[in-house]
């Protein structure tokens, strides 16, 4: 484990990228900040710019309009970074796979941009907040 990865794992700061979600995954992410789950106690903070972020929380399928913006956001994030794909939409596409406005799965878009990207899938529609926390912890423990 390099120094950079070791540093990455401490108090990860996250930036929320909503690419054509149904809103539900996003609301559950915001839910994580509120008193019942309160992920700030683990040092996880939602930040306002991808340049400050250690991880991207990506929800939803990326449609044609949002794909270039997603790539730009990924480029702007300081590396190394972790991409968490929240929900069934981001992980696999569910119903929207093959839709006329959904050209590619999110993971393919990111891997095309950066073949070494670290991608973590958290399935569920929406994943329960407990599952989200468990996914993040699991990912950090194997990095």
């Amino acid at each position: 484990m390099g120094l950079k990865t070791a540093a990455l794992k401490k108090s990860i700061w996250v930036f929320h990228v909503a690419c054509s979600p149904c809103n539900n995954c996003d609301i559950e992410i915001l839910d994580l900040l509120t008193p019942r789950f309160d992920i700030e106690r683990f040092g996880i903070v939602l930040v306002g710019s991808p340049r400050h972020a250690d991880a991207l929380l990506i929800t939803g399928v990326a449609n044609r309009h949002v794909t270039p913006r997603l790539i730009e956001t990924y480029r702007a994030t300081s590396k190394p970074c972790v991409c968490f794909l929240f929900g069934a939409c981001a992980s696999g596409g569910t119903f929207f796979k093959g839709g006329y406005n959904v050209p590619k799965p999110v993971d393919e878009i990111i891997l095309e941009e950066d073949p070494n990207a670290i991608i973590v899938y958290i399935p569920g529609c929406p994943p329960k907040p407990e599952a989200m926390i468990a996914g993040v912890v699991k990912a950090l423990s194997v990095l």
């Binding site: 054509s20 949002v66 913006r69 406005n101």
Partner: peptide, 11 residues
Amino acid sequence: IGYNHRGHEKL
């Protein structure tokens, strides 16, 4: 807007 259009009516 347009960042959220997934084509429900067609699907």
